[in-house]
Design a protein around this nucleic acid. Structure first.
Length: 546
RNA sequence: GGCCUGUUAGUCAAGUGGUUAAGACGUCGCCCUCUCACGGCGAAGACAGGGGUUCGACUCCCCUACGGGUCACCA
């Protein structure tokens, strides 16, 4: 009776009842075993590598079971919300291949279980909160920040657990007159959950990833509605995941510490609990210590970093999958060309402890991913990257697509494709010597060779070069030139007694390579010359020889 | 400090009482080879420490150490 009065006193404008709300959210009709997951970020305008780790898990879980993967925006903290936050989230994830079936879209909602922005759900939360008050499970607290601070200090000095509990929960059993008085005074209040928990009680809880974990009951009367009537994360989580039919909650393991409170909330509200998948964190080595990867200190924490560095979307996805499911690499080895969707994703193969982000590994994965692409695909993706990050290079690429594709085709395809591109940002350097406008020598012929020998060899090659020669003919001419100039044409022979020669055919090739490409290392020189064309090859050789 | 949680090579990891303790990245060496890349072969490198339980412990239990997380009207 008293509680009924209190509920009306606190939220007089709420006329809806929980049942009214429930009626708006019918049970989802889905195939047996279908999982409903959600990605629920704050629209801070920043996506973290850890967010992606979770988002992939959500997405795979839903889509491998015929379920639903939806986007919910947790914008209950106005201070953290940025104007384009939602658009950034949707667009960044879309680039990484994460597409939602339902939920918030840039200018509204898509789906029958909205609104999907928590800031638009105040009435819903308050309806359930009001019910909790009626049932004596929640109460108002008028403590000021200073009062709470004083409590904290007292607890600290007496080495007690911090928090609003027991004797410190001063408004827990306040008489209604006192509440009335504060209200009449126009003072703000928060709504707190009345915890019946005891920290001496331990219980077991089954997590889909972590297995059975021990939890201690919560005895703190946490805030569920802030003074502006907007819920805290905890309350919104319980209400939303219940109404929206989430079956599996995927979240960072840092939420484990508040799990006991969430268990209480679901119970108090009469909701069935979803399954929880608490994921390990992505860590980073810092001064010899592992720590959570941080958006402030670590540029690689930002998803946009991978995009601007030029990592292919597929590579980031692929690498994350290797972290996500320990048997993914093995599967990939056996199925090099299968789409990632064919992989049987499971929470059972997820790591329990945090893992260090390994850029070396990412690079390797990326090289493999790119080596499986056609020259055409590499061209398209490089061009797309360059348009955003290197417009000059983009225009070079666009000027002659066919030429660029020929360059990118060298050593591509077949059983043993070249694997020398990990990032789109490396492609320019890889291709530059094919363009007179970008040609800039980086290596020189070592001084140990006589300039006169180098010139003689280059001139001899220029005189003999015929672009119609097949590769073996081309190479035999080089051997002849080597021989004629005191360089050994046979590598085995040369290695047996290097002192008998000025050098080897490898050195002769090197002279040509440096002259034509400006560097000591390059893909197959014959193919390079074929692509460059007679005129350019001879011009570069002659220029170098003199 | 309380609570939760973790600890197999430099990194990611397989492993569930009996294994020569997989594999991948990285490192190094050799081979292939006109260079690089690719590919092939090989090497070094690990069960945090101590107690139990057991015929037998990386696997189970306890303690210690170390790591991570969390203790807001933030999510």
């Amino acid at each position: 009776m008293n509680n009924e009065l209190l509920a009306e006193l606190l939220y007089p404008n709420i006329k809806t009842l929980p049942a009214d709300i429930e009626a708006r959210y019918p049970k989802r009709v889905l195939p047996e075993g279908a999982k409903v997951t959600r990605f629920a970020p704050s629209p801070t305008g920043f996506l973290h590598i850890g967010n992606l780790y979770g988002a992939f898990t959500d997405e795979r879980l839903a889509h491998t079971t015929g379920g639903i993967f939806y986007l919910r925006i947790e914008d209950t903290d106005a201070k953290r919300t940025v104007p384009n936050g939602i658009a950034i989230i949707i667009e960044t994830l879309a680039k990484l291949g994460v597409i939602f079936d339902e939920g918030a879209v840039i200018d509204g909602d898509n789906g029958a279980y909205g609104p999907y922005r928590q800031s638009e759900r105040a009435e819903i939360y308050q309806t359930f909160a009001k019910q909790l008050i009626r049932e004596g499970k929640a109460y108002p607290c008028f403590c000021t920040e200073e009062e709470l601070e004083a409590i904290r200090e007292k607890q600290e000095s007496e080495k007690l657990n911090p928090g609003y509990y027991g004797e410190f929960a001063i408004w827990r059993d306040a008489p209604i007159e006192k509440i009335q008085e504060k209200l009449d005074n126009g003072e703000a209040f928060v709504l707190r959950f009345r915890s019946e928990g005891n920290i001496n009680n331990k219980l077991k809880f089954g997590d889909e990833i972590k297995g059975t974990i021990d939890v201690t009951e919560n005895d703190i009367d946490h805030v569920i509605l802030k003074s502006d009537g907007i819920p805290t994360y905890h309350f919104a989580h319980a209400v939303d995941d219940h109404l929206m039919g989430t079956t599996h909650v995927v979240r960072d393991e840092s939420w484990l510490s508040t799990l006991p409170f969430h268990i209480q909330l679901f119970k108090a509200l009469g909701f069935k609990m979803p399954k929880y998948c608490h994921t390990a964190q992505v860590l980073k080595l810092d001064n010899g210590n592992k720590r959570k990867i941080s958006k402030r200190k670590d540029p690689e924490a930002a998803l946009t970093y991978y995009h601007s560095q030029g990592y292919p979307v597929a590579a980031v996805r692929e690498y994350l999958m290797t972290l996500l499911n320990s048997n993914f690499e093995e599967w990939r080895l056996a199925n090099p060309n299968a789409p990632i969707e064919d992989f049987k994703f499971t929470t059972k193969k997820m790591s329990v402890s945090g893992s260090l982000f390994d850029l070396d590994k990412l690079n390797d994965v990326s090289k493999n991913v790119i080596s499986r692409m056609t020259a055409e695909e590499v061209y398209d993706l490089t061009l797309a990257w360059a348009k955003e990050n290197d417009p000059e290079f983009a225009s070079v690429l666009e000027a002659d697509k066919e030429y660029a594709v020929r360059i990118l085709s060298i050593g591509r395809g077949g059983k043993k494709p070249r694997k020398d591109i990990a990032l789109w940002s490396e492609v320019k350097n890889y291709m530059s010597f094919f363009y007179n406008g970008l040609f800039a020598p980086v290596d020189a012929v070592p001084k140990t060779f006589e300039k006169s020998d180098v010139s003689a060899i280059l001139n001899a090659f220029a005189a003999a070069y015929d672009e119609n020669d097949a590769q073996d003919v081309w190479f035999s001419k080089i051997k002849e030139i080597a021989s004629a100039n005191g360089f050994c044409p046979d590598m085995k022979l040369y290695k047996a007694d290097p002192s008998a020669f000025k050098g080897s055919v490898a050195d002769v090739s090197m002279f040509l390579r440096v002259a034509v490409t400006g560097r000591m290392n390059s893909p197959d020189l014959y193919e390079v010359m074929q692509i460059l064309g007679r005129e350019t090859v001879l011009a570069r050789i002659k220029a170098f020889a003199s």
